[in-house]
Amino acid sequence: MKNIKFIVIGAVFGLVLTKTEAVSWFRIQEMFRFQSFHMYGIIGSAIVVGMISIFIIRKLDAKAINGEEIIIPDKKLNKGSIIGGTIFGMGWALAGACPGPLYALLGAGYPVILVSILSALAGTWVYSRYRLKLPH
């Protein structure tokens, strides 16, 4: 099963997010009020480690374990970055979570989060349905 490794990495990712309280509605409130360094420290140090890692991978021209060349496609800037980004940010602050934490919270013993996940799926579906009518 080639997908087992992704379950394991996902489990570690979910465990870390949960134990550091990044999945907590309270921490998100604190972050958007600038009342603690905690969330900024998490996101900032994650970016620094990710950045250094990608720099090393590129410098060494490292290949993936299956021998494939690692190519990171460019993300495109469009109006969605601004409009969609603002809508996402408002949802992040209102729900106090983003997609990853929703999954982790479901496992952490909050079954009502299932409703949030279904609603996030509905949001994704509605975007997909009306995508061509929205400014991009």
Partner: peptide, 24 residues
Amino acid sequence: IVLGAFMIGFGSRYAGGCTSGHAI
């Protein structure tokens, strides 16, 4: 629960990613 999560799902796809895909 419902409106907040709906905006997360709608906005993340509209923006082409969420905190993990864009920020990290």
